[in-house]
């Protein structure tokens, strides 16, 4: 999906595939593959927040992990534009060549408990990247970690404490401080607020937005909670069984979805207002999410789609560009009149 905006994208993902082999038996023979990410393309412009949404197993986390190169993608390109450099394909680099880019592309994890090594103090956790990249050491390191803690709203006196002394929200702040340590440009936030209580979630969302403004950060925000996504993102990509089914500006996607799956997702979100109960039309999906190791023919969504027709069963819809900056993978995107958030709400 080429960038059509005048600004050059910071990151462009082209035809990304990530397959995991399924191994069985004593000799671990490969008996099949899970197509966790299946031909995914998108781009992120500097300073924007792009969200990947979808239900569990849709490949959003795997996509994020390919970009930070926890995984080595099966195929496809991850083009990153570093400052004053040509675009470079991260998918091709090995661990050594990735090092400079690991400083600029950082990750925030979902689970604030498992993502911090309980055996290291906050100074060691947050300062690790500064230390291994020889940016700072000794008292300078301490000073930098302290100011990072202050930046994310923690008291710098906490520097010698261990993670077990902190609550979930505070740990997530520590995780954010770690991500900020090396002045990153792109942050992949993988369900960064999903494990948090609503009041803590609000604190962290505010913090992320403040940091974005202040440091001109670019976010790839991976989430399953549509209200959170609606709140934080500029553009949203909806994923279903390893594929992007729709990508649009947040406002457009929520008010006027073009893919039936997006419509169903929006309809399923509980509205925090009892007066909206039983108003509008409910769309309830039948059946189960398709198995990514054995997806259905044609459009992956057709067995559950209320608008499916014969064509959907045979022909796989390509991701098409529709009006401006909107992309959708549905044969009938133009014909269907789907309901957005407001219409349902």
């Amino acid at each position: 999906m080429p960038g059509d905006s005048s600004i050059e994208p910071l990151l462009e993902v082209r035809n990304l595939h990530m397959q995991f082999p399924i191994r069985r038996g004593a000799f671990r023979r490969t008996v099949g593959v899970v197509k966790a990410v299946n031909d995914v393309s998108f781009h992120i412009r500097p300073g924007e927040t792009l969200s990947l949404v979808g239900e569990s197993g849709c490949g959003k986390t795997t996509t994020g992990r390919c970009i930070v190169r926890v995984y080595e993608p099966t195929s496809g390109q991850i083009l990153y534009k570093a400052e004053e450099q040509e675009r470079i394909d991260l998918a091709e680099l090995d661990n050594r060549d990735l090092r400079p880019f690991r400083r600029e592309i950082r990750m925030i994890f979902q689970d604030p408990f498992s993502s911090l090594n309980p055996r290291l103090s906050i100074l060691q956790v947050v300062g690790e990247s500064l230390k291994v990249n020889r940016v700072a050491s000794g008292s300078e390191l301490e000073g930098r970690v302290a100011s990072l803690l202050k930046r994310v709203g923690l008291r710098p006196e906490y520097i010698r404490r261990y993670p077990h002394a902190f609550s979930g929200g505070e740990r997530q702040r520590i995780g954010i401080a770690r991500a900020l340590a090396l002045n990153p440009r792109l942050i992949v936030a993988d369900e960064a607020v999903s494990a948090l209580d609503v009041s803590v979630q609000a604190q962290i969302l505010n913090l992320l937005q403040d940091l974005q403004e202040e440091l001109n950060l670019t976010y790839l925000f991976i989430a399953h909670d549509l209200s959170v996504v609606e709140h934080i993102s500029h553009r949203v990509a909806v994923m279903y069984v390893g594929k992007i089914v729709e990508l649009a500006a947040t406002e457009d996607l929520f008010t006027n979805p073009l893919h039936p799956y997006t419509e169903a997702l929006l309809s399923a979100v509980p509205k925090p207002d009892p007066r909206l109960r039983n108003k509008g039309v409910r769309i309830r999906l039948e059946g189960e999410v398709a198995d990514p190791s054995n997806p259905p023919s044609g459009c992956y969504f057709h067995p559950r789609c209320p608008y499916a027709e014969e064509r959907c069963r045979h022909e796989e819809p390509a991701v098409r560009k529709i009006e401006g900056d909107r992309w959708v993978a549905c044969h009938f995107a133009e014909e269907l009149d789907l309901r957005g958030f407001e219409a349902i709400g």
Partner: peptide, 14 residues
């Protein structure tokens, strides 16, 4: 596959 080990890898730890 623990998150904190992945995080260390992303920090650039050898």
């Amino acid at each position: 596959t623990e998150d904190f080990v992945i995080a260390a890898r992303l920090d650039g730890v050898r």
